[in-house]
């Protein structure tokens, strides 16, 4: 299962500390195991929410750092893709994975699978022993859908204003955090459904 999906920045953002990352979208597929078995079962809903947001922020920062180290090591010059060049941007995207130890920050650990498209990171936090080949293709599909339908390569702010589109995509491709074995036809049918949703 996937613990959460997030979209976050990989570039410096005014007002954030060095190495910080602005989380633009996050969807945690609750409940977390710790809600009952963890060390703080008696947290108030408010505290739980705060804890969850902090956890997501930790992952975003870790991914940002992993990504910048990897980009530095590869030494490839960054290619700027513009609105409409989503396919090219996806092909140029860097990707990687980092292990999250138990409790750091999620109770059971797992790994963060990330895809870096220019200044934006798309991250799936997977539970341990998840099928990463499947997770990778799901993450790519999600990133592609987000890029295309939220015009992420352009200057707009759809990512925060029209985040229901991301929710609708997650609802189909990653229902309740379940990775799906979708062959190209299953994928096309869901894509078509999504296109109807996006057209509204």
């Amino acid at each position: 299962m996937v613990q959460c999906f997030l979209i976050h920045t990989l570039c410096p953002v005014a007002g954030l500390p060095d190495g910080g990352s602005r989380v633009l979208f996050s969807r945690v597929f609750g409940p977390e195991d710790s809600a009952l078995t963890g060390p703080d079962p008696d947290l108030s809903p408010e505290e739980k929410r705060l804890l969850q947001k902090e956890k997501v922020a930790v992952v975003a920062r870790q991914v940002r750092s992993a990504c910048s180290l990897q980009r530095e090591a590869s030494g490839r010059p960054a290619v700027e893709a513009m609105l409409g060049e989503e396919t090219a941007a996806m092909q140029e995207a860097d990707s990687g994975v980092l292990r999250l130890g138990a409790g750091d920050p999620f109770p059971r650990g797992g790994c963060a699978l990330w895809l870096a498209v220019q200044a934006l990171g798309f991250t799936l936090v997977c539970q341990p022993h998840e099928n990463l080949l499947l997770a990778e293709s799901s993450l790519r599909s999600l990133a592609r859908i987000c890029l295309e339908n939220l015009r992420l390569l352009g200057p707009g702010s759809e990512v925060v204003l029209k985040s229901d589109r991301i929710e609708a995509a997650l609802h189909r491709l990653l229902p309740h955090g379940q990775l799906l074995f979708l062959n190209h036809r299953f994928g096309q049918i869901l894509d078509k459904e999504l296109a109807v949703y996006m057209a509204k």
């Binding site: 920045t9 570039c11 953002v13 005014a14 007002g15 602005r22 633009l24 220019q118 200044a119 934006l120 992420l152 390569l153 200057p155 707009g156 702010s157 990512v159 925060v160 204003l161």
Partner: peptide, 14 residues
């Protein structure tokens, strides 16, 4: 890609 407009929207919302 990441526009300052988005950042200010988040700020406003907060």
């Amino acid at each position: 890609m990441y526009a300052s407009g988005t950042e200010s929207l988040i700020k406003q919302a907060r």
